[in-house]
């Protein structure tokens, strides 16, 4: 669900619909609420393996948002440790397959491949950047985190996270907009 707030920032609540995704454009500021799932390199490899063998995933992919993060362990009494985004391009070989199966949003940092950008346009999804290297700040927006698959991967396990007010920026939208290209052009001289 998406609401445009008075200051032009979008309040986005998971899960996302195709209609929700159509509203967002590269450069839009977003604050995110709801449940998201974490996955990094090895978890992606396994998820795509499950899809190729027509097996069920550890969570329902349709409309969901995946956050590329490997958090630090939580200190006692806290939901999570430091939890900023990892660089997204490492997930590029797997992301189009997940998008084709209903994934609506990805959160990471850094540029995506053309294949991912094409999948975003074709299947209507969105790629957000969180603030790289700001894991302490971001941890304040994570209410809970629970490992739901692959605990043996340690920090690379799949967590189900509940977030509140997580600040994001739209990088790639369904119209082909790319903030990493458009934003840079404005200041290049």
């Amino acid at each position: 669900m998406i609401d445009r707030l008075e200051n032009g920032v979008f309040r986005v609540e998971t899960p996302l619909s195709t209609e929700d995704v159509k509203t967002l454009s590269a450069g839009d500021r977003v604050i995110l609420y709801g449940v998201i799932y974490t996955a990094r390199d090895e978890a992606h490899r396994r998820l795509v393996g499950l899809l190729q063998d027509s097996n069920d995933l550890p969570f329902e992919l349709r409309g969901q948002v995946i956050y590329y993060v490997g958090p630090t362990p939580a200190r006692p009494g806290r939901p999570i440790g430091s939890a900023g985004p990892t660089t997204s391009y490492r997930m590029d070989p797997y992301a189009p397959e997940l998008i084709a199966h209903g994934l609506k949003g990805m959160i990471g940092k850094g540029r995506r491949s053309n294949a991912v950008k094409d999948a975003i346009k074709r299947y209507k999804a969105v790629y957000f950047a969180a603030l790289g290297g700001a894991g302490a700040l971001i941890s304040k927006n994570i209410l809970s985190a629970r490992v739901i698959a692959y605990p043996e991967l340690g920090p690379e396990a799949i967590y189900r996270m509940e977030v509140e007010g997580l600040g994001l920026v739209v990088i790639n939208d369904i119209h082909g907009g790319d903030l990493y290209t458009d934003g840079v052009k404005e200041y290049r001289k």
Binding site: V69, T72, G81, S82, T86, G133, G135, A136, L137, Y187
Partner: peptide
Amino acid sequence: ESPTGREVLKNLLDNANIARQDRIPICQDT
């Protein structure tokens, strides 16, 4: 010069302060 850039830089300073106060790593990639 970029307003978004300034906002990001302020967030990075906030992040450093939170890390120091809460004794939590500055970045999850330690």
